[in-house]
Design a protein around this nucleic acid. Sequence first.
DNA 1: AATAAAAATTAAGCTGGTTTAAGAAAATCA
DNA 2: TGATTTTCTTAAACCAGCTTAATTTTTATT
Lengths: 189, 189
Amino acid sequence: MSEQILTEHISSYVNFSEEELSEIACFFDIRSYRKKEKLLHAEKRCDTLFFVAKGCLQLYFIDDLGNPKTTQFAMETWWLTDFLAFQNQRPSNFYVETLEKSTVLSITFSKYQELLEKFPKMEKYYRAILETAYGAALMRIKYINSLSKEEMFFSFRNSFPEFVQRVPQYVLASFLGLTPEYLSEIKKK
Amino acid sequence: MSEQILTEHISSYVNFSEEELSEIACFFDIRSYRKKEKLLHAEKRCDTLFFVAKGCLQLYFIDDLGNPKTTQFAMETWWLTDFLAFQNQRPSNFYVETLEKSTVLSITFSKYQELLEKFPKMEKYYRAILETAYGAALMRIKYINSLSKEEMFFSFRNSFPEFVQRVPQYVLASFLGLTPEYLSEIKKK
DNA sequence: AATAAAAATTAAGCTGGTTTAAGAAAATCA
DNA sequence: TGATTTTCTTAAACCAGCTTAATTTTTATT
């Protein structure tokens, strides 16, 4: 079931036969995780790329004071990892953890290389995905540098209302770059 | 000369014959620009992707108060555009402008599509470039959410010392998300 | 070399957002 | 179902970084 989420997503970018799609699916491990399970540990070699079939993941780090800070969320059909560390097979700068019960497809770095070698059309798929992700990251930096914390919250809630319901408020606060206390104050208005 | 910067860069990721490389180069327009020339205008359809062969570009927007804010720099061998708008052929959210006399290779969206169709190996090149760019953007967001403005400056200067010399201080300030006045104060120490 | 324009500095007053700390509400678990 | 832990709220004191405005330095133009 879960691999179908992936193969359908791939099919919306590139044309593959049913046969090819099931071959592609074989490159991935499928696993379900409980809430708050770690899929990737900071400092450990970043060897895995994740695709969310169901549920929600976060990419986060621990700051000087020991508080977790969320850098990126990933919901259904999103890819997640520390891409820089993954590409260079270096220690990860981030943790990846479930925010809720989730089903995730994982691919190791070497399998990822094999996959791209065996199905060069997958390059096109990832190129498109990464164009979107990088473009969105540039927009996010634009927002960070132009909106107040209050505007950040309302603009985010406006774009992703379901999402604001779905994740704990202190996680959302750390993603938006403000304190849970201040977020609480903003919501009061 | 300038197309060689591009073809050498491509060659460091993917193997192409000399012939193929010169065919690839034909998809691009090469032009030199003076300092402070606009290559892409906000609100106008984002139809072009830029590669810096020489010099330096910035991606920026104008905030509520009319001040330009730099979101991204691009130096030699970097690619730049509003990737989200480019991909969807929508109006750009950013301006692209030279920070110094620069030589730039430009490719339109339709030529980019043709290029990828004719040379599918270029998908691999762009996939790799975008993996790096997106990975770096995640790291940048990590820095924004963990360093003070002062630490931002020293950490940036530590990583890119030549660059700090190269761009005007008020542009650097807007890129780092602080005021020129405060940056000046930080440097005094 | 003189003039004008752009960029950088300095300093004082101010504010958006943090910190700290304690209590209330909600979720989880035996 | 009650006990425990986790999450959310409230409020006051505080500060990193901004605003404003005037001066100096640097760069560009003739």
